[in-house]
Amino acid sequence: MRIPNRSLRRSSSADTEATVDDETGPAVRLENVRHEYGSTTGRFRSRSEQAVTALRDVSVDVKRGEVLGLEGPSGSGKSTILHAIAGLLVPTDGTVSVLGTDLTELSDRGRTRTRRRHVGIVFQRFHLLQSLSARANVALPLVQVGLPKSARRERATTLLSEVGLEDRVTHLPSELSGGERQRVAIARALSTDPDILVADEPTGELDTDTGADVLELLTDVGRDRAVIVASHDAATLAVADRVVTLRDGAVIEGER
């Protein structure tokens, strides 16, 4: 399922840093990515004593229409890869390219713009704003796009219908089940019609049946996008076209 809204992609000339769209190459490319989480505590300790290496020379490509699974134990670096692809962190070394644009070369504002236009994020714990209705949550990314309220509402309503929540449009997150909340989160991730969808343990908070429904939805909406799913769960990873296994921040097994 794809609900295109290419008008969302149009941009002014001032936005060029985030609008490079390489149709031929991989949607996402990580090259020799290394990342250390440095501690800000321990003022008199050296950085090397405090730093934790999260990723070690990770190189991964993800094509459009592909679902990539990331597996590995806690602390293996799955979430760090997702955050790097979403531009939420800049790796210590290496490059992270989204549609041909190297995120490590962009400012925080540029990465934010790229994320808004090209990357949708689905979290394990949904992270919906409790004070907003399902529709307002889905419309949230469109606020920064500058769409009028009526257009935001219309698009959000359409997306909620597509994920099977047409009768939950005005409900608050607290009035929804876990599966419904995750559907709202997926609809929100799709609101700007991104090319890339990253999902961090998307079924982690759901029961088996609900999780299966959400996975079906994810693969359905990800048909012509690049989808990267991080999970411990074998059932979740089963929907992936390809699975990369991580341990201690390094890829130990690929192309499964």
Partner: peptide, 16 residues
């Protein structure tokens, strides 16, 4: 803070 972090993840910049 979580709300602000969510706003950041959906692409709303610091100024917003």
């Amino acid at each position: 803070r979580r709300t602000l972090a969510v706003l950041q993840t959906v692409g709303i910049p610091l100024s917003g």
